[in-house]
Design a protein around this nucleic acid. Structure first.
Lengths: 217, 217
DNA sequence: TCCTTTAGTGACCAACGGTCATTGTATGAC
DNA sequence: GTCATACAATGACCGTTGGTCACTAAAGGA
């Protein structure tokens, strides 16, 4: 790689690191491009040589974090039964997100379709591909649990959307920095995670919907 | 009420109605205060006589919608078993939100703590009170189901947070206008709701977490 | 009738995201 | 070593937008 290109690359990661750091300190909404440029020691125009818009910076950070998470889950050694693996992944996910709330905020922000419409084709495609990878991981995990008899053999598709929704909800809570104002009975985030994991497991291991409804009636 | 005050009130609802209408057409992010004022037939300064900031308008609309929804759920006639009532409320909720995606977007937007920090004390208190009301409704519904033996007698608190998360996730999806880009196997929103309801019911009717874990091991 | 109060107004401001003509320097051909 | 070229860096500049405020006019009340 040419010396010039290398410098360019270094500057880009410097900009991303600086941005994330500033976002942590001041909240990503309040950080201006001018601030970012100043803290990174470059001029404002330079930022736009690397990123087509402020939102593009958000997207890059969100995508990076999301990718890192997936890599992390995949690197987990399988331990115990498939259902225990699922529990493990869930706990890891919650811990990872709790440790990086700003990245979670960015992920949620970039999931909004109005924003995605403003991004470039490449960025949108990358996000979509990552979504698919997550879906694949989910299928693998649940399929294993079904084959092990820990989860009844019902359509994985339906389960996916339930878990997807609950996951989004947890991200929202983490991004919000907690469970809202302290009220009587508001659990700690750790206890909250425990509740959610158990709810997910119950949702997965519950009987087939059709049977479930018949029983309920 | 004095004539002047009445006019003032009318203008306020006119402004809110106009705002919602514009948000529907152009997306709430892109609508400017100047546009709102022009469409409502008032000057820009007048808007700020009614609302302290643009975000305050968001909050008012979100709060209104959220309140209307709760009223709607409460007005539902109890029909069938408690668990069937829960299913009914869930379906009503999803239908209501699907019919008003912009309001859902605003609700999500206003749930963010950075925004709430910028709102007035009154608005924050109103939102918190409404949150409590929802929590009360949930407790009533689940308690009835437990007493009817349709849901095992486990701590409602844990169930609440699971359902809360999944609900947030569904709102996110509705706000996004769908389940993302059409992929193979992506269900319609209606089928999606069905999956989610079944997942929630499974989560509620699942065995007590502690027992569940013992079985899984 | 007159004074007070207050909603309405729109010119104005500051902040911000984004642009672009210009400048300086690394690169590569000869 | 020299020179032409490409392109990253720069920062003055622009348009838009949320928000302000001194002023106007009309309703309310004594």
């Amino acid at each position: 790689m040419r010396y010039q290109d290398e410098l360019f690359q270094q500057r880009e990661t410097l900009l991303l690191d600086t941005a994330l750091s500033l976002f942590r300190d001041s909240g990503w909404e309040r950080v201006t491009i001018a601030q970012l440029a100043q803290h990174a020691g470059v001029a404002k125009g330079t930022v736009y040589k690397h990123f087509s818009s402020k939102e593009s910076i958000y997207a890059r950070l969100a995508l990076g974090f999301s990718r890192d998470c997936l890599t992390h889950y995949r690197a987990l050694e399988p331990a115990g039964t498939p259902l225990q693996s699922i529990r493990r992944v869930l706990h890891e996910a919650f811990a990872l997100m709790q440790a990086h709330p700003v990245d979670v905020q960015l992920c949620l922000h970039c999931d909004r379709p109005e924003l995605q419409a403003r991004l470039g084709e490449d960025e949108r495609a990358a996000m979509e591909a990552l979504d698919r990878d997550y879906q694949v991981l989910f299928h693998e995990l649940v399929r294993a649990a079904i084959e092990a008899g820990e989860v009844p053999d019902k359509p994985i598709e339906g389960l996916f959307w339930g878990v997807d929704a609950i996951f989004q909800g947890v991200m929202e809570r983490i991004a919000a920095g907690g469970l809202g104002p302290e009220r009587h009975g508001t659990p700690s985030l750790e206890a909250y995670f425990e509740h959610v994991v158990e709810f997910i497991v119950a949702g997965l291991t519950g009987p087939d919907p059709v049977q479930g409804r018949e029983i309920a009636q």
